[in-house]
Amino acid sequence: MDIQAIWLTAKLALVTTLILMVVAVPMAWWLSRWQGAGKALVQAIIALPLVLPPTVLGFYLLIAFSPNNAFGQGWQALFGSPLAFTFEALVIGSVLYSLPFAVQPLHAGFSQLQPALLETAAMLNVPSTARWRYIILPAMLPHALIAAGLSFAHTIGEFGVVLMIGGNIPGETRVASIALFDHVEALDYTQAHQLAAVLLVVSLLLLIALYWRQGKGGAQWRAM
């Protein structure tokens, strides 16, 4: 079995999820508080990966990563090697591709956070670190779990973006979905079956876990 590809997929999903949690929490907090004129535009840009063909996102990223462009040039100057077709490129692509899956549950959570709770905390002189620790974070934890679970699952299921910006380098960019495609191209159905079954079971288990939590009174979410 293609252990290397499965391991790489897990690594990519994990790194992507961790980065998304760091990026999406302040973004969702800000979105839930901001009432500016450009809000719809910002929300639409974050939600774009939901509707855009992954190849479109992958195509623009590939262009941006090229050493002929500022971003690619900057990366090369900083790290000494081109960005395209590396694991780092996959991480950047995955973060953008799964961004709505992280931001939307968190945004819903922050929006549902009762203003009266924060008002009361301020009125009772509770300092802001304690407010985050005892009031905001506990209320947000179920939403954060959903955001993390969906980001992780969605990254595992990624194909188009990876194909465009990662190619098919074993141990570097050859994730499970790409390896599966490869096996089918090579008519190696035994390997393809094994890999497909692993992806199917892992994704199914993840979603069962999320729905189970929802049934237990965790935060609500809709499959997008």
């Binding site: 009762q114 002189n125 509770v126 304690a130 005892y134 009031i135």
Partner: peptide
């Protein structure tokens, strides 16, 4: 509201220490 993530003693202790 009382703070839902804290028990009654947690609510009182948090405001007392603040």
């Amino acid at each position: 509201p009382l703070f839902p993530a804290l028990s009654v003693s947690g609510n009182l202790a948090l405001v007392a220490s603040s």
